[in-house]
Amino acid sequence: MNNLIKKYFYGDYGEIEEGGSNTSQENQWPLWEIFIRSKQGLDHKHVGSLHAADAKMAIENARDVYTRRLEGVSIWVVESKYITANNPDEAGELFEPAKDKIYRHPTFYKLPDKVNHM
């Protein structure tokens, strides 16, 4: 029964089997997802994850790990356990149906030549 109500966290798959901050190791700090804005006006982009004891430390660790080479002007951190990921087993019903609906792409319109940057 437990399997049915399992909540999936980002990081549950692949290398980090334990996932999120629900690790069994006592000496392990929670995992945080790091988002960096490379310059003003651009979006924050996910760049990776790291361990930190609290949010302040996560920001500082992110600064040291991800912005040493001037990669960013702003940092967001969020504890990984607060990110809910879909179950890969559900990929079929979630994503497949969009496959044969090419009319959702805005490629069926003729744009006037005057319109640039589209």
Partner: peptide, 12 residues
């Protein structure tokens, strides 16, 4: 350092 992130911080 016990945690790689702090290893990097102190080395920085």
């Amino acid at each position: 350092a016990p945690i790689i992130e702090q290893d990097i911080a102190l080395t920085n």
